[in-house]
Simulated assay, not measured.
Amino acid sequence: MNTYMAPVSVVIPTHDERRWARLVATVRSVREQSPAPAKVVVAVDHNPELLARVRRELPGVTAVGNEHARGVSGTRNTGVAHTGTPVVALLDDDTVAHPGWLAGLVRPFADPRVVGTGGAIMPGWQRRPDWFPDALLWAVGASETGVSPIPATVRNVWSGSMAVRREVFTAVGGFRVGFGKVGGRSRPEDTELCLRMSRHTGGHWVHVPLARVDHSIPDGTVSLRYLLRRCYHEGRGKVEMSRLLGGRDSLSSEREYLRRTVPLAVGRDLAGAVRGTERHGLARAGTVVAGLAAAAAGGAVEWLSSSGTRTRRTP
Protein backbone atom coordinates (compact mmCIF):
# COMPACT_ATOMS: atom_id res chain seq x y z
CA MET A 1 0.00 0.00 0.00
CA ASN A 2 1.33 3.46 -0.93
CA THR A 3 2.06 5.92 1.86
CA TYR A 4 1.56 9.67 1.63
CA MET A 5 4.83 11.37 2.58
CA ALA A 6 4.37 15.10 1.74
CA PRO A 7 4.20 17.73 4.54
CA VAL A 8 0.82 18.70 6.00
CA SER A 9 -0.41 21.88 7.72
CA VAL A 10 -3.26 22.21 10.24
CA VAL A 11 -5.70 25.15 10.37
CA ILE A 12 -7.76 25.89 13.50
CA PRO A 13 -10.47 28.60 13.24
CA THR A 14 -11.51 30.44 16.41
CA HIS A 15 -13.57 33.48 17.34
CA ASP A 16 -14.36 33.73 21.06
CA GLU A 17 -11.88 34.28 23.90
CA ARG A 18 -14.23 32.44 26.26
CA ARG A 19 -13.14 29.27 24.44
CA TRP A 20 -9.46 29.92 25.19
CA ALA A 21 -8.86 26.87 27.37
CA ARG A 22 -10.36 24.59 24.71
CA LEU A 23 -8.31 26.28 21.97
CA VAL A 24 -5.11 25.67 23.95
CA ALA A 25 -6.04 22.00 24.35
CA THR A 26 -6.75 21.74 20.61
CA VAL A 27 -3.37 23.22 19.69
CA ARG A 28 -1.61 20.92 22.15
CA SER A 29 -3.26 17.83 20.66
CA VAL A 30 -2.13 18.90 17.17
CA ARG A 31 1.46 19.47 18.29
CA GLU A 32 1.53 15.97 19.77
CA GLN A 33 0.67 14.31 16.45
CA SER A 34 3.21 12.02 14.80
CA PRO A 35 4.41 12.92 12.31
CA ALA A 36 4.16 16.53 13.43
CA PRO A 37 2.45 19.06 11.12
CA ALA A 38 4.72 21.32 9.07
CA LYS A 39 2.71 24.35 10.20
CA VAL A 40 -0.10 25.13 12.64
CA VAL A 41 -2.28 28.14 11.71
CA VAL A 42 -4.82 29.64 14.12
CA ALA A 43 -7.24 31.83 12.15
CA VAL A 44 -9.19 34.35 14.25
CA ASP A 45 -12.57 35.67 13.13
CA HIS A 46 -12.57 39.49 13.54
CA ASN A 47 -11.44 39.56 17.18
CA PRO A 48 -8.27 41.70 17.54
CA GLU A 49 -7.90 40.99 21.27
CA LEU A 50 -8.01 37.24 20.74
CA LEU A 51 -5.62 37.49 17.78
CA ALA A 52 -3.13 39.38 19.93
CA ARG A 53 -3.43 36.80 22.70
CA VAL A 54 -2.79 33.91 20.31
CA ARG A 55 0.35 35.64 19.05
CA ARG A 56 1.47 36.37 22.59
CA GLU A 57 0.71 33.09 24.36
CA LEU A 58 0.96 30.40 21.66
CA PRO A 59 4.54 30.62 20.34
CA GLY A 60 5.30 28.58 17.27
CA VAL A 61 1.75 29.01 15.96
CA THR A 62 1.00 31.21 12.94
CA ALA A 63 -1.87 33.53 13.98
CA VAL A 64 -3.86 35.32 11.26
CA GLY A 65 -7.04 37.39 11.20
CA ASN A 66 -10.00 36.57 8.97
CA GLU A 67 -9.55 38.47 5.70
CA HIS A 68 -13.15 37.91 4.58
CA ALA A 69 -16.62 38.68 5.92
CA ARG A 70 -17.36 37.50 9.45
CA GLY A 71 -18.03 33.78 9.72
CA VAL A 72 -16.23 30.47 9.94
CA SER A 73 -16.10 29.94 6.16
CA GLY A 74 -13.95 33.01 5.56
CA THR A 75 -11.91 32.25 8.67
CA ARG A 76 -11.01 28.78 7.40
CA ASN A 77 -10.24 30.14 3.92
CA THR A 78 -7.86 32.68 5.43
CA GLY A 79 -6.09 29.98 7.41
CA VAL A 80 -5.64 27.73 4.38
CA ALA A 81 -4.32 30.68 2.34
CA HIS A 82 -1.49 31.04 4.88
CA THR A 83 -0.30 27.47 4.36
CA GLY A 84 1.79 26.13 1.50
CA THR A 85 1.61 22.37 1.92
CA PRO A 86 -0.13 20.10 -0.63
CA VAL A 87 -2.57 18.85 2.03
CA VAL A 88 -4.18 20.94 4.77
CA ALA A 89 -6.11 19.55 7.74
CA LEU A 90 -8.82 21.52 9.53
CA LEU A 91 -9.79 21.11 13.16
CA ASP A 92 -12.33 23.07 15.22
CA ASP A 93 -11.19 24.97 18.32
CA ASP A 94 -13.35 22.89 20.70
CA THR A 95 -11.96 19.49 19.71
CA VAL A 96 -9.02 17.40 20.87
CA ALA A 97 -7.34 15.09 18.37
CA HIS A 98 -6.52 11.52 19.38
CA PRO A 99 -3.02 10.16 18.69
CA GLY A 100 -2.82 9.10 15.05
CA TRP A 101 -5.52 11.54 13.93
CA LEU A 102 -3.36 13.45 11.45
CA ALA A 103 -1.57 10.37 10.10
CA GLY A 104 -4.93 8.68 9.55
CA LEU A 105 -6.40 11.63 7.69
CA VAL A 106 -3.50 12.07 5.29
CA ARG A 107 -2.84 8.41 4.45
CA PRO A 108 -5.56 8.16 1.75
CA PHE A 109 -3.97 11.05 -0.19
CA ALA A 110 -1.50 8.53 -1.63
CA ASP A 111 -4.34 7.92 -4.09
CA PRO A 112 -4.40 10.96 -6.44
CA ARG A 113 -8.15 10.57 -6.92
CA VAL A 114 -8.81 11.50 -3.29
CA VAL A 115 -9.69 15.20 -2.92
CA GLY A 116 -10.29 15.10 0.83
CA THR A 117 -10.77 13.04 3.96
CA GLY A 118 -12.62 13.27 7.25
CA GLY A 119 -12.44 11.56 10.61
CA ALA A 120 -14.83 10.50 13.36
CA ILE A 121 -16.02 13.26 15.70
CA MET A 122 -16.85 11.80 19.10
CA PRO A 123 -19.29 13.65 21.39
CA GLY A 124 -17.50 14.80 24.52
CA TRP A 125 -20.53 15.13 26.76
CA GLN A 126 -20.13 16.54 30.24
CA ARG A 127 -23.67 15.34 30.87
CA ARG A 128 -25.83 14.00 28.07
CA PRO A 129 -29.58 14.76 28.36
CA ASP A 130 -31.59 11.57 28.75
CA TRP A 131 -33.90 12.59 25.91
CA PHE A 132 -31.13 13.18 23.34
CA PRO A 133 -31.19 10.54 20.54
CA ASP A 134 -28.22 9.16 18.60
CA ALA A 135 -30.01 9.97 15.33
CA LEU A 136 -29.52 13.70 16.01
CA LEU A 137 -25.87 13.62 17.07
CA TRP A 138 -25.07 15.62 13.92
CA ALA A 139 -26.89 18.57 15.52
CA VAL A 140 -24.13 18.85 18.13
CA GLY A 141 -21.33 18.32 15.60
CA ALA A 142 -20.73 14.64 16.36
CA SER A 143 -20.58 11.56 14.14
CA GLU A 144 -23.12 8.76 14.08
CA THR A 145 -22.50 5.79 16.34
CA GLY A 146 -21.84 2.28 15.10
CA VAL A 147 -19.75 3.31 12.08
CA SER A 148 -17.48 0.66 10.56
CA PRO A 149 -13.77 1.19 11.40
CA ILE A 150 -12.81 0.58 7.76
CA PRO A 151 -12.17 3.71 5.61
CA ALA A 152 -14.89 4.22 3.03
CA THR A 153 -15.73 6.50 0.12
CA VAL A 154 -18.40 9.03 1.13
CA ARG A 155 -20.21 12.00 -0.38
CA ASN A 156 -19.00 14.45 2.26
CA VAL A 157 -17.21 14.81 5.56
CA TRP A 158 -17.41 17.46 8.30
CA SER A 159 -15.15 20.46 8.63
CA GLY A 160 -14.62 19.82 12.34
CA SER A 161 -12.16 17.09 11.33
CA MET A 162 -11.22 17.36 7.67
CA ALA A 163 -8.21 17.32 5.34
CA VAL A 164 -8.23 18.74 1.82
CA ARG A 165 -6.00 18.62 -1.21
CA ARG A 166 -4.98 22.27 -1.21
CA GLU A 167 -4.78 22.60 -4.99
CA VAL A 168 -8.41 21.52 -5.45
CA PHE A 169 -9.61 23.53 -2.44
CA THR A 170 -8.05 26.67 -3.91
CA ALA A 171 -9.34 25.97 -7.42
CA VAL A 172 -12.98 25.94 -6.27
CA GLY A 173 -12.55 29.01 -4.06
CA GLY A 174 -12.61 27.21 -0.72
CA PHE A 175 -15.63 27.41 1.57
CA ARG A 176 -18.44 29.58 0.23
CA VAL A 177 -18.13 32.84 2.20
CA GLY A 178 -21.50 33.93 3.58
CA PHE A 179 -22.75 30.34 3.54
CA GLY A 180 -21.80 28.85 6.86
CA LYS A 181 -21.96 29.47 10.59
CA VAL A 182 -22.33 33.06 11.79
CA GLY A 183 -23.80 33.57 15.25
CA GLY A 184 -27.00 31.52 15.56
CA ARG A 185 -27.28 31.02 11.80
CA SER A 186 -25.93 27.73 10.49
CA ARG A 187 -25.53 26.34 6.97
CA PRO A 188 -23.85 23.09 5.79
CA GLU A 189 -20.78 24.80 4.36
CA ASP A 190 -18.69 21.64 4.64
CA THR A 191 -21.11 19.49 2.63
CA GLU A 192 -21.37 22.20 -0.02
CA LEU A 193 -17.57 22.39 -0.29
CA CYS A 194 -17.23 18.61 -0.57
CA LEU A 195 -19.68 18.46 -3.45
CA ARG A 196 -17.95 21.26 -5.37
CA MET A 197 -14.50 19.73 -4.92
CA SER A 198 -15.70 16.31 -6.09
CA ARG A 199 -17.41 17.80 -9.12
CA HIS A 200 -14.34 19.85 -10.02
CA THR A 201 -12.02 16.87 -10.44
CA GLY A 202 -14.30 13.83 -10.49
CA GLY A 203 -12.47 12.72 -7.34
CA HIS A 204 -13.90 11.48 -4.08
CA TRP A 205 -13.82 11.81 -0.29
CA VAL A 206 -12.75 9.17 2.19
CA HIS A 207 -14.08 8.81 5.73
CA VAL A 208 -11.43 7.48 8.14
CA PRO A 209 -13.29 6.40 11.32
CA LEU A 210 -10.12 5.68 13.30
CA ALA A 211 -8.89 9.27 12.81
CA ARG A 212 -10.76 10.47 15.89
CA VAL A 213 -11.31 13.73 17.71
CA ASP A 214 -13.33 14.51 20.83
CA HIS A 215 -15.77 17.40 20.44
CA SER A 216 -16.46 19.19 23.71
CA ILE A 217 -20.15 19.61 24.60
CA PRO A 218 -20.27 21.61 27.87
CA ASP A 219 -22.98 20.90 30.40
CA GLY A 220 -26.11 22.97 29.84
CA THR A 221 -25.37 24.00 26.26
CA VAL A 222 -27.83 21.54 24.69
CA SER A 223 -31.51 22.16 25.35
CA LEU A 224 -34.56 21.11 23.38
CA ARG A 225 -34.93 24.71 22.22
CA TYR A 226 -31.34 24.74 20.98
CA LEU A 227 -31.80 21.42 19.20
CA LEU A 228 -34.98 22.48 17.39
CA ARG A 229 -33.39 25.77 16.33
CA ARG A 230 -30.36 23.87 15.02
CA CYS A 231 -32.59 21.48 13.06
CA TYR A 232 -34.57 24.40 11.64
CA HIS A 233 -31.42 26.08 10.34
CA GLU A 234 -30.15 22.79 8.94
CA GLY A 235 -33.36 22.40 6.98
CA ARG A 236 -33.01 25.89 5.56
CA GLY A 237 -29.35 25.29 4.76
CA LYS A 238 -29.95 22.03 2.88
CA VAL A 239 -32.60 23.63 0.66
CA GLU A 240 -30.33 26.61 0.01
CA MET A 241 -27.42 24.29 -0.77
CA SER A 242 -29.53 22.32 -3.23
CA ARG A 243 -30.48 25.54 -4.99
CA LEU A 244 -26.85 26.70 -5.16
CA LEU A 245 -25.53 23.43 -6.55
CA GLY A 246 -28.50 22.12 -8.48
CA GLY A 247 -29.22 18.47 -9.13
CA ARG A 248 -30.90 15.81 -6.98
CA ASP A 249 -27.55 14.25 -6.08
CA SER A 250 -26.80 17.17 -3.75
CA LEU A 251 -29.34 15.76 -1.25
CA SER A 252 -28.78 12.04 -1.80
CA SER A 253 -27.41 11.40 1.70
CA GLU A 254 -30.29 13.30 3.29
CA ARG A 255 -32.84 11.12 1.47
CA GLU A 256 -31.02 8.00 2.68
CA TYR A 257 -31.02 9.38 6.23
CA LEU A 258 -34.80 9.89 6.10
CA ARG A 259 -35.44 6.56 4.46
CA ARG A 260 -33.29 4.34 6.69
CA THR A 261 -31.66 5.98 9.71
CA VAL A 262 -34.70 7.81 11.07
CA PRO A 263 -37.22 4.92 10.92
CA LEU A 264 -34.70 2.54 12.49
CA ALA A 265 -33.90 5.00 15.30
CA VAL A 266 -37.52 5.80 16.09
CA GLY A 267 -38.53 2.15 15.90
CA ARG A 268 -35.69 1.06 18.19
CA ASP A 269 -36.51 3.68 20.83
CA LEU A 270 -40.23 2.96 20.72
CA ALA A 271 -39.64 -0.80 20.97
CA GLY A 272 -37.39 -0.25 23.97
CA ALA A 273 -40.04 1.89 25.63
CA VAL A 274 -42.74 -0.75 25.06
CA ARG A 275 -40.54 -3.57 26.40
CA GLY A 276 -39.47 -1.47 29.35
CA THR A 277 -35.78 -1.82 28.50
CA GLU A 278 -35.36 1.82 27.46
CA ARG A 279 -36.71 4.18 30.10
CA HIS A 280 -36.26 7.26 27.91
CA GLY A 281 -37.10 5.62 24.58
CA LEU A 282 -40.38 7.47 24.11
CA ALA A 283 -38.75 10.84 24.78
CA ARG A 284 -35.91 10.10 22.34
CA ALA A 285 -38.28 8.96 19.61
CA GLY A 286 -40.39 12.07 20.13
CA THR A 287 -37.29 14.25 19.94
CA VAL A 288 -36.33 12.75 16.57
CA VAL A 289 -39.80 13.47 15.20
CA ALA A 290 -39.75 17.03 16.59
CA GLY A 291 -36.29 17.65 15.14
CA LEU A 292 -37.37 16.46 11.70
CA ALA A 293 -40.47 18.65 11.89
CA ALA A 294 -38.26 21.65 12.70
CA ALA A 295 -35.95 20.82 9.78
CA ALA A 296 -38.95 20.45 7.46
CA ALA A 297 -40.27 23.83 8.62
CA GLY A 298 -36.88 25.42 7.92
CA GLY A 299 -36.74 23.82 4.49
CA ALA A 300 -40.24 25.05 3.68
CA VAL A 301 -39.41 28.59 4.77
CA GLU A 302 -36.25 28.60 2.63
CA TRP A 303 -38.08 27.15 -0.37
CA LEU A 304 -40.90 29.70 -0.11
CA SER A 305 -38.41 32.51 0.39
CA SER A 306 -36.37 31.55 -2.65
CA SER A 307 -39.52 30.99 -4.72
CA GLY A 308 -40.75 34.46 -3.80
CA THR A 309 -37.41 35.97 -4.78
CA ARG A 310 -37.48 34.24 -8.17
CA THR A 311 -41.06 35.39 -8.75
CA ARG A 312 -40.22 39.01 -8.01
CA ARG A 313 -37.26 38.86 -10.38
CA THR A 314 -39.28 37.33 -13.21
CA PRO A 315 -40.96 39.96 -15.43
Rank of each mutant, 00 (worst) to 15 (best):
S305C: 10
W101Q: 06
G180W: 07
S253V: 12
E67Q: 14
P112N: 02
T201N: 04
V266F: 04
P123G: 04
L270F: 00
F175E: 06
V87R: 08
A103Q: 12
V72A: 01
Y4K: 06
V239I: 15
S305M: 03
A163S: 13
P218S: 01
V54W: 06
C231N: 13
A21C: 00
R165G: 05
K39E: 15
G291M: 04
E192T: 12
T62G: 00
T14S: 13
P48Q: 02
S9R: 12
A69K: 13
W138A: 08
P188E: 06
S252P: 00
D249C: 03
A103K: 14
G118M: 07
M197H: 07
K181N: 14
L245S: 07
R19N: 09
S186K: 13
T221V: 13
A271G: 12
R56S: 15
R310C: 00
L91Y: 07
L51N: 06
G308H: 05
K238L: 14
V239F: 10
P123M: 05
M122V: 15
A300T: 14
I217H: 08
P86N: 00
A120N: 12
L210K: 11
L50K: 11
E57H: 10
T309A: 15
G79R: 09
A52Y: 06
G174V: 09
A36L: 11
P35N: 01
W138G: 07
R176F: 05
A103R: 15
R268F: 01
T78I: 04
N156E: 13
K39R: 15
S73G: 14
V262I: 15
Y232T: 06
R22T: 11
V87P: 02
M122L: 15
R176H: 12
G246C: 02
T287G: 01
P149L: 01
R312N: 07
S198L: 02
T145D: 10
G119S: 03
G308D: 04
V11M: 06
G141N: 12
Y226L: 09
R185N: 06
L91N: 05
